[in-house]
């Protein structure tokens, strides 16, 4: 019998078509040549429908988190949707206090999406997963007709192990606690906006997208009594702190002068009429801990490359109305509220 020849995918000029999601040989080929090759590990090599994973150590519990990623543009200064979808899910697991172990990834591809871009995104995902030491052990791919998707959507799910006795939750903040951030705010959202049509401006702003489990481990090793960890993604610091205030039934008072913001992000905010506290981050932590541990926590964060600009930015107060307030650098007070609706540049 003649040996079957399958022409390799044209990763330079080719594009996704419906057959790549159709369950036939083309799909197998795409999975093998693009995903399998990049993510290569013992689980994927088996080619089964799911990954068989070892049970966690006795006493440990599992933490699971999932995140759907739609971002425009797909490639932006400092990253792309590939590394972003790995970091985002690792961070959701990490801020629960868990050690991220495995990822699952599902892809919705739009017919016509260039294979070169897909390969680039997958390579970026694989590199991010490898650097983080968290393998992608299972996945799925679907293709939708042209016009029914925005190029590529990626959903990642993460599994992590939570050591016995560790309880981190947004409901744990207590009056008197200190609020800390691990670095400058608004970098990711502004890096994206800089590339949007019509808004385009030039700057050196880069997304802060990063896997935070190392930073989390360092923080929790130094201050195990840390009460809350969160990554302030969509809606920025303002949304995250309002969530925590709601969950914990407390108020928060911030000190504006202490909040780190990159000068270029601040300037871009002036151009667009936006507030850095509402803008997304993908590589920052918000931590709340008892006041007497705050110095140790800030020191532990600063000792890590991803927390070099960590700062204490406020305190938790008793407030039945659960307001987040801020002492302005100008000398007054105001509320820091959730963003109303979609964030749109203002002219007035």
């Amino acid at each position: 019998m003649k040996k079957t020849y399958i022409r390799p995918l044209d990763l330079r000029h080719g594009s996704v078509d419906l057959s790549h999601g159709g369950g036939g040989r083309a799909m197998v080929q795409l999975i093998g040549e693009v995903f399998g090759r990049a993510f290569d590990n013992e689980w994927l090599r088996r080619g089964d429908d799911g990954a068989v994973l070892p049970a966690p150590a006795p006493g440990e519990r599992l933490v699971m988190a999932t995140d759907a990623h739609v971002v425009s543009p797909l490639f932006f200064p400092g990253g792309d949707i590939g590394c972003l979808c790995v970091h985002g899910t690792i961070n959701d697991v990490a801020v629960m206090g868990a050690r991220p172990l495995y990822l699952a990834a599902s892809f919705i591809l739009e017919e016509g999406f260039p294979l070169a871009e897909l390969a680039r995104i997958v390579a970026s995902m694989a590199a991010a997963a490898k650097a983080a030491g968290v393998p992608v052990v299972t996945g799925d791919t679907k293709v939708v007709e042209r016009g029914k998707g925005d190029g590529i959507f990626i959903t990642t799910t993460g599994l992590g192990a939570l050591p016995a006795g560790r309880e981190l939750s947004g409901a744990n903040a207590r009056p008197g606690d200190t609020v800390i951030v691990s670095g400058t705010l608004g970098d990711h959202g502004m890096a994206i906006m800089a590339r949007r049509e019509n808004l385009a401006f030039e700057s050196e702003i880069r997304s802060d997208t990063a896997a935070l489990h190392g930073l989390v481990a360092a923080a929790l090793a130094a201050v195990p009594q840390t009460r809350v960890l969160r990554d302030p993604t969509r809606g920025g610091l303002a949304a995250t702190l309002n969530e925590i205030a709601q969950q914990s039934g407390v108020g928060i008072v911030l000190d504006e002068a202490a909040i780190p913001v990159d000068p270029q992000v601040a300037a871009a905010c002036e151009f667009l009429g936006l507030d850095p506290l509402n803008i997304a981050n993908e590589g920052k932590l918000v931590a709340i801990c008892p006041a007497d541990a705050a110095d140790a926590l800030v020191a532990a964060l600063r000792a890590h490359p991803l927390g070099a600009r960590a700062a204490r930015i406020g305190e938790v107060i008793a407030d039945e109305h659960r307001f987040v307030q801020m002492k302005t650098a100008f000398g007054g007070r105001r509320m820091v509220d959730w963003l109303a609706g979609e964030q749109l540049p203002r002219i007035c």
Binding site: G176, G251, V316, I317, H321, R333, R334, M335, D337, R346
Partner: peptide, 24 residues
Amino acid sequence: VSSEGACAAHYTYGRFRDIPVTAA
């Protein structure tokens, strides 16, 4: 309607003034 309107500004930035807030 806009963040600059009297009501939106009060809602977004000034609501805490309407109620007494007790410090920790």
